[in-house]
Simulated scan of single mutants.
Amino acid sequence: MSRPKLLAVASGGGHWTQLLRMRRAFDDFDVSYVSTFEGHVDNLGGARLYIVPDASRFDVKPFGKIFWRALKVMVKERPKVIVTTGSAPMLAFMLLGRMMGVHTLWIDSIANTQKLSSSGRMARKFVNTCVSQWPEVAQKEDVAYWGQVL
């Protein structure tokens, strides 16, 4: 019996570091990764890695390319679950995933100590589960708190 597919998505830097710290939770899945940085392939032990352009609310031009790439990855991988530790480029995966009936989990970055990130505030409107890594933020923003990814 094959393992269900999980798509783990995050941009580089702290988002990526937090995502990799959760890898043991993915042990029962066939995992593929998405990042904005090709250099991350060395950390994955042979797992599939897809690259998308980086983008932000200050640079929205790449979102068209990101959405198109996300659609291609989603059709190829057919994940049952998508997990992200946030960042704007990964919104495309979460939105497409939700539209395709995939369970979506947004874990807002631990750097957001006072409120959800702007991407997290958007994502919580359509993902299955949105989590803050700070109990005060979770209560204030009416999202889940499961602890911190340290």
Rank of each mutant, 00 (worst) to 15 (best):
R3P: 03
P4E: 07
L6M: 15
V9H: 02
V9T: 05
A10K: 01
S11C: 07
G13A: 15
G13C: 15
G14S: 09
H15Q: 05
T17N: 07
Q18T: 01
Q18S: 15
R21S: 07
M22I: 03
R23A: 09
R24H: 14
D30E: 06
V31G: 06
V31C: 12
Y33R: 11
S35Q: 08
G39F: 08
D42A: 09
G46E: 00
Y50I: 14
R57C: 06
R57T: 07
R57I: 11
F58V: 02
F58C: 04
D59K: 04
P62R: 15
P62N: 09
F63Q: 02
G64M: 04
K65C: 03
K65M: 05
I66Q: 15
F67Y: 11
F67W: 06
L71C: 10
L71P: 06
L71G: 06
R78V: 10
V81R: 10
V83Y: 01
T84R: 05
S87I: 08
A92S: 15
A92L: 15
G101S: 12
H103K: 12
L105T: 10
L105I: 15
S109N: 07
N112W: 05
Q114W: 15
S118L: 13
G120T: 10
T129W: 00
C130D: 03
V131G: 08
V131N: 08
S132Q: 09
P135N: 09
E136H: 07
A138G: 05
A138N: 09
E141C: 02
Y145P: 11
Y145R: 03
W146C: 07
G147D: 03
L150N: 07
